[in-house]
Design a binder for these strands. Structure first.
Length: 582
RNA sequence: GCGCCUGUAGCUCAACCGGAUAGAGCAACGGCCUUCUAAGCCGUAGGUUGCAGGUUCGAGUCCUGCCAGGCGCGCCA
């Protein structure tokens, strides 16, 4: 609908150029068309006369008049007028709305999709939580946001892949392995203190039981030779010493067995969790594989070849400060080991090598410092820095009965995503997670999410969908049958304000999907669906749909079917179900 | 100290690339069930968009400086 106005305006401006009134047709972005906020201003408005008046050397209202005079005729438009400082207001004819309503019914589940993205390849990387424990409620927001965003991008014609970067290398994994082994010793009544900075979570005991079932007591060693962490001043160093001693005691192969056991158990738990949450990934990308495939070496070679590295203190540094980062970064430590950062830029290089044009990372707000350095890394390796786009997701605060819950993975005191899902349900969780802008802190209220009332937007929207389904059932019980063609032919009968409002809101859907996708803002879709549900509920209360008059009845049922369709499509993009009864 | 994010109604938040009279929900108050699900609808009330300047036809939105809150600044991952 909006695009047809856009096309008409472009035509008008071209006409003015050929008449010599304007010098050239302006860039597409400067021709703005918006839905009006106030119905008295018509349906759509453009500010282009005000934008162009200066270069044309005319008063805005005069230019607006010229533009209007140059508009090609269209059956869509009922009225065009100039308002305020120079807005051009368009009012659609009712047949324009009816045509769009027909489209909704014809296109069904694909209504709202478009080819805006032109098949451009996008890699959305999200969640990517360390596989050191179950996902907690914060990860849930990342999952819901990333999945909805990926769906939106796909809907507007991007070629989207979803990826989870698995941090299966490095120190955290070793701490995890150590924690598991110590828990395993506990099961065999071998006394060994679990350091406070190791992983304390109960879930590790469960994994230890599995380990015990698979290996019996064959992994038991005498821990008395191990150094103590508790008495140490520097607990992190002491923990590293303990890990080193443990590896020596067990041997590398056995230590690896323990580590892989922990990784496999936790990763498969994460996969199940996300899949139950309706969040699926095309690929689980192993950090470890980066060194195995030589991706890290390739990245380092590119940095060196482009003269972006230097040696200092035995380590290899990346000259990131030359490319917008605040300081230089180590890529190879003095002990020869590559850093996490080296893996990271290697991973992003590898994404580019696979042909992705947009690398869209969904990260926690605490990772903002890392954007500049990865971007610098891409640039140094000869990739466009703008190909990396990062969306930061702010923290989630969980409230239970007005009390804020504290979360910490290492201490093991946190509410897991699974617990949350079991308590409030997947639908409520998915929707509440994305109803706020990603760069806004989210207060997740468990009582609200569970409440079956209007303060809960999940039920409000789903209820609208269920009501339409219920009307359809009632229709059949009363012996009627809905004839879509008759309904479409009778749309002119729908002229009361509630019907016009609903029609206009329903047909706004494609525009919403587009702006939500381009702004990476699923919350816009949530707000829209709430508005749509509101228009439907209002209509429902004001008018009877199942009436004697067949033409009117078919038209009304047709209209509410479009509302149902759009709600189902929208909720589908958000990973929320659209039930037929509640 | 430097950097990123946030500040809008009593509370939680919207406001599409700078547009016309800043909008919803909750909470408060008052109405609507003999009629397709009241998990709903309608109405009333609620604002100097943190503060001070600036840019322009027009600023919650952009720029500068303050104030307040969150987060980040490792040869950790």
């Amino acid at each position: 609908m909006k695009s047809s106005i856009h096309a008409l305006l472009t035509k008008a401006l071209e006409n003015l150029v050929s008449k010599g009134v304007l010098e050239s047709v302006p860039a597409e972005e400067t021709i703005q068309v918006e839905r009006t906020r106030d119905p008295s201003h018509g349906d759509f408005a453009s500010n282009c006369a005000m934008m162009l008046c200066k270069s044309a050397g005319m008063k805005p209202r005069d230019l607006a008049q010229q533009i209007i005079d140059s508009l090609p005729g269209s059956h869509l438009i009922q009225e065009v007028s100039i308002a305020g400082p120079g807005f051009i207001n368009f009012r659609f004819s009712s047949s324009a709305w009816h045509t769009e309503i027909r489209r909704v019914l014809e296109e069904g589940v694909s209504y709202g999709t478009s080819h805006l993205g032109k098949g451009e390849q996008v890699l959305v990387e999200f969640v990517s939580a360390n596989p050191t424990g179950p996902l907690h409620v914060g990860h849930g927001r990342h999952a819901a946001y990333g999945a909805s965003l990926a769906n939106l991008l796909e809907a507007v014609g991007y070629n989207v892949r979803r990826e989870y970067y698995v941090n299966d290398a490095g120190r955290q994994m070793q701490i995890l392995a150590l924690s598991l082994w110590l828990r395993y010793l506990e099961l065999h009544d071998v006394a060994a203190a679990l350091p406070e900075n190791a992983y304390q979570g109960e879930y590790i005991i469960d994994i230890a039981r599995d380990l015990q079932a698979e290996h019996g007591d064959s992994l038991v060693r005498d821990p008395s030779v191990l150094p103590s962490v508790t008495d140490a001043e520097d607990k992190e160093t002491a923990l590293s010493d303990l890990i080193a001693a443990c590896r020596e005691l067990l041997g590398e192969d056995t230590f690896r067995i323990v580590q892989d056991k922990a990784l496999d158990a936790i990763l498969s738990d994460i996969k199940d969790d996300l899949s139950e949450f309706g969040v699926v990934f095309d690929r689980w990308y192993s950090e470890r594989s980066l060194s195995e495939t030589g991706a890290i070496d390739r990245a380092l070679e590119k940095l060196q070849a482009n003269n972006h590295t230097y040696i200092k203190g035995g380590a290899t540094w990346f000259r990131a400060s030359d490319l917008g980062d605040e300081k230089d970064r180590v890529v190879v430590r003095d002990n020869g080991q590559t850093t996490y950062f080296a893996s990271d830029i290697a991973y992003h290089l590898e994404k580019r090598e696979r042909g992705f044009e947009i690398l869209l990372d969904v990260l926690g707000a605490d990772h903002h410092g890392y954007i500049a350095r990865v971007r610098a890394g891409l640039e140094a390796m000869g990739e466009p820095p703008g190909s990396l786009e990062v969306k930061l997701v702010q923290f989630v605060s969980l409230f239970r009965a007005g009390k804020k819950e504290q979360m910490s993975t290492r201490s093991g005191q946190f509410v897991t995503l699974r617990q949350l899902r079991e308590e409030v349900g997947n639908d409520a969780a998915r929707l509440i997670y994305v109803m706020r802008s990603n760069d806004q802190h989210l207060d997740f209220d468990l009582e609200l999410a569970k409440s079956q009332s209007s303060d809960n937007p999940v039920y409000y929207i789903q209820y609208a969908h269920a009501r339409v389904a219920s009307v359809t059932r009632q229709l059949h019980e009363k012996g009627y049958r809905w004839d879509p063609e008759s309904g479409l032919a009778s749309l002119h009968a729908l002229e009361n304000p509630h019907e016009m409002a609903l029609m206009k809101t329903v047909t706004r859907y494609p525009e919403i999907v587009e702006t939500a996708a381009l702004n990476r803002a699923p919350h816009m879709l949530v707000h829209y669906l709430r508005d749509l549900a509101n228009d439907f509920h209002t209509y429902y209360n004001a008018h009877q749909f199942i009436v004697e008059d067949q033409a009117l009845r078919d038209a009304r049922i047709g209209l509410i079917h479009t509302a149902r369709q759009v709600i189902a499509n929208g909720l589908g993009l958000l990973g929320v179900s659209a039930p037929d009864s509640m």
